[in-house]
Design a protein around this nucleic acid. Structure first.
Lengths: 209, 209
DNA sequence: AGTATAAGCGGACAATGATCCACTTGTCAA
DNA sequence: TTGACAAGTGGATCATTGTCCGCTTATACT
């Protein structure tokens, strides 16, 4: 999930060497063209063919690199995802004395702010047809990593509150509620603010005694 | 939401008269062809053009009648939806002494059994591109009616349990969890049975004191 | 029965997602 | 520098979704 124009260790260097110079240049041009078109017209309105034309590559080249618009969006936000998990890690380290419920709220807050900042690209990832097949959806690295975090927190909450809830199930339902379709429905149709969505999700998943 | 080949009241009769005989015949042939192809190949694998060819109508005719495969699937299950709400109404009348939590569980049980019986068509409705636009999704008549039922139950639970949860929000999240993508993920990826999904949803939405 | 008219038709066509094969090009070893 | 070869290319093509317009047909009225 690292940017391939960032050199961070030896295995990254050897990976760069495997990509031909023309291919690397094409990929950069694709990303730049996509970013430009997405900013101008919005992710949903831009077609893959438009991106290919703008990047001056053929459709075959574009699809060899990215199977779908969703994969392209994912490449565009992968640095932001890294930053998100850095922020979460920092938050957890600075607030390790908080209860698991408080930490859950803090993490959800960070995620919702991330979602607000990168709304269209995240939607582009989640709504893309190739990441949308019935069985494989919801299994992006982002999903898996967040899910793991949430499961651990719910387990901790079970331990401190002497409850026996199914953490995996709850994490899945919570992440479903934070997906583009559901989240945007709450915002645009129900007119909830991000803060209200956060509060309501906590009210649902956190026991108050 | 009534079958247009069922005559139940005057307004239905006048609606039938407005449809030309050839159009009504074409519509029947479309529905029959779709049902046949869906049973043979599965909803997701069948294209609208295949349905048009099988029904011996042109693509323009098919799309004039149904904007998308989702609308076609909806027409195919509309009688089952009526039946579902009849069953729910009967259940509620026969069990009006149950607590709201018990009734919620009963209703969810009926809905999940309905979903199991008509899994592919429901998925066809929910995953169709024209019912899937960001703003309009989750607003089918089925969604609205179920949502209303759930809101009333949650309100009742708030009253009897002296809680103050947001019923609209909870109904939305619950229905999101019961959507095709989420439900199939629980079944096929997490390997939960329908009964387990029901139990876990009740554990999340019903307070146990 | 004849006529008017609006509903309805189909298929050519466009847009988009996506594939694949003959050709091109970059890289590395000699 | 040259040659081999594998990575990479683009665009023709296909499948699907979806539109639209000139033509046809059903229906109601006289």
């Amino acid at each position: 999930m690292l940017g391939s124009d960032e050199i961070v260790n030896g295995s990254e260097i050897s990976q760069i060497r495997l990509e031909r110079r023309d291919a690397a240049e094409n990929r950069q041009r694709i990303l730049y063209a996509a970013l430009k078109l997405f900013e101008q017209y919005g992710v949903e309105q831009v077609s893959m063919n438009q991106i290919a034309n703008e990047a001056l590559v053929g459709p075959g080249t574009l699809y060899r690199r990215y199977r779908s618009k969703g994969e392209l969006c994912m490449d565009l936000i992968k640095d932001n995802i890294v930053q998100l998990f850095d922020d979460i890690e920092t938050y957890l380290r600075d607030n390790c004395s908080f209860t698991p419920s408080q930490r859950l709220k803090g993490i959800l807050n960070l995620f919702i702010r991330f979602r607000e900042r990168k709304a269209q690209l995240i939607t582009g990832v989640e709504e893309s047809s190739s990441t949308n097949s019935l069985k494989s959806r919801m299994r992006s690295p982002l999903y898996d990593e967040l899910h793991q975090l949430l499961v651990e927190l719910f387990d901790e909450m079970n331990a401190t509150e002497r409850t026996n809830f199914n953490s995996v199930f709850r994490a899945d339902i919570l992440l479903t509620a934070l997906r583009s379709d559901s989240y945007l429905f709450q915002k645009d149709v129900r007119n909830y603010s991000p803060e209200m969505i956060l509060e309501q999700l906590c009210a649902l998943f956190i026991l108050h005694k």
